[in-house]
Design a protein around this nucleic acid. Sequence first.
DNA 1: GCCAAGTGTATCACTGTATGAGACACTTGC
DNA 2: GCAAGTGTCTCATACAGTGATACACTTGGC
Lengths: 130, 130
Amino acid sequence: MLTIDLDDSTPLYLQVSQGIQRAIAGGALRVGAKLPSVRQLAGDLAINLNTVARAYRQLEEQGLVRVRQGRGARVASDLVSGDRSAAEADLRRSLAQVFSEARLAGLDRMVVERAARACLDDLEATKERK
Amino acid sequence: MLTIDLDDSTPLYLQVSQGIQRAIAGGALRVGAKLPSVRQLAGDLAINLNTVARAYRQLEEQGLVRVRQGRGARVASDLVSGDRSAAEADLRRSLAQVFSEARLAGLDRMVVERAARACLDDLEATKERK
DNA sequence: GCCAAGTGTATCACTGTATGAGACACTTGC
DNA sequence: GCAAGTGTCTCATACAGTGATACACTTGGC
């Protein structure tokens, strides 16, 4: 469910935390679910346990995960705090960049629209099966 | 047209190159247009000229800009090379992350859809006026 | 032809971030 | 009480980002 790409310039700890974010947003990880231990996940991904620990700490700062020494980490929420309008502004900034890159790469507007719809659908898909 | 946010963790040189990318994708900068000199832009943005130079060099590697010593930099193309299917895969990865973050921030699916459509429209807006 | 002004380039130093190795501390169950 | 499992801390290293400064190329006016 979670993969790491060493060629990607995105820091490993971010690849990990973002992967878990997506799993939570998509419903693959529900509130209360236990995350693998830092050693377990580090072993699976063939990276250092500190790197996983850092990802967990970041998720805890966002309030998505609750980490307790000796006990492991669990999903604490599927909603981060912070005001909506700021989030919407961030969303627009991100989308403007992503769409620009897609168009520069020669992707047609229709292709981009279809990809966007597909991604949104994927996100809801798992969520529905409650 | 181009702004720099020191609080944003995105490297300055990337903020610069991405801003120019967006300007090219949106049509604000047409092929052949001259970019400000590295000193000029660095002065405007209150950053080091090397940082701007690095952004220009990156844009040149992508083939979007042509830089010549002593002569300045011009927009060389509004299309980067590379195959479409890879670009589409990248697009999907990026969108999956951006949408996940938006939903975690509590944004409704409809709000996200509306933002996406608005961003796409903005992108085409300037382009039309030829 | 020369030179001043404008342009990008190269080098060096400094700082902070990312990653990893290893030791430490807490919790649980037997 | 203790062994096994869990997260945390500290230290070291490598590299990326940024800036100051000096260098090299191009153009235009004379």
